[in-house]
Design a protein around this nucleic acid. Structure first.
Lengths: 143, 143
DNA sequence: TTTATTGTAACAATCTTAGTTACAATCGTT
DNA sequence: AACGATTGTAACTAAGATTGTTACAATAAA
């Protein structure tokens, strides 16, 4: 049970779908390969679907498909879809007394937000196609 | 009880020390202002001290001081001192069967590490002096 | 009708974090 | 020497977050 596995799992799942775009991928299949549970997969992929990154079909021969070309899905899209907020957290209730303290709080918060923005900017520069490409490279000289 | 408050608390504490460099700041004082507990403060600042960012003195009129100029302490130093790893997590035991799966795991891990490296690079561009400067700005036109 | 699949709720187990209490060690002050 | 203020640290509690699991309704193909 490790942390931050949602982003990792999402990347796994997306790569699987990119690897075989012709068939819908079932949550059971993805879960098997990612070493987790189908329900966990559906939970995570549900968020990606809500963000328009994926589509899903119920019933026999159903499963999950990419909604767009892999070149048009960035890691920032995935990050946003998951609703992650790694750096900046919601500020608690304002309990500060003096103006300097409030200013400090505001500034720390703003800096955290700036950092998070930088992170998102970085994430937006890598697409699933990029991830997919490097997986093929790794596989070709796997140990 | 919010997440990621250690980094936030560290920034608060450092700013306090930078604000009054002449006197050692006690954990009780910092805790009061940051709205938390002295022990929590000592826990976090202990890590910064272990990284050489701070010094502390016991006993009467003891407390915490910056070990270096504020211009020479970056947010990356603080991040590293806290031992945070927001993006990349330790890989679990290798349970993958096929080479493609192992390659995927490796690649996802590598990408997470790349992202974390970018984050650290960004953090290294902001110093405590920068933070301090903008606090003064905020305080001058506080609401 | 059967089978395979998603969608979702409910719950358990584990891990993380913050908070708290307690107390020894240290060091200035009286 | 005694006292008071402070760090250092261990132990514990409480709350939250995350993952895993079971169960079952809804859906759609075979």
């Amino acid at each position: 049970m490790k942390r931050n596995s949602r982003l990792s799992l999402a990347l796994h799942a997306l790569s699987h779908m990119a690897y075989d775009m012709e068939n819908a991928q079932t949550s059971a299949d993805i879960a098997d390969h990612a070493g987790t549970n189908p329900v966990v997969v559906r939970r995570v992929l549900g968020k990606l679907r809500a963000a328009g990154l994926l589509t899903s079909e119920r019933g026999h021969s159903g499963g999950w498909r990419l909604a767009r070309d892999t070149r048009h899905i960035t890691l920032a899209d995935v990050y946003a879809a998951l609703g992650e907020s790694l750096i900046a957290s919601d500020p608690g209730p304002e309990t500060n007394v003096c103006a300097v303290e409030r200013a400090l709080d505001n500034r720390v918060l703003r800096i955290m937000k700036e950092i998070e923005d930088s992170l998102v900017a970085r994430l937006s520069q890598t697409t699933i196609a990029d991830v997919q490409r490097s997986i093929r490279q790794d596989a070709s000289h796997a140990h």
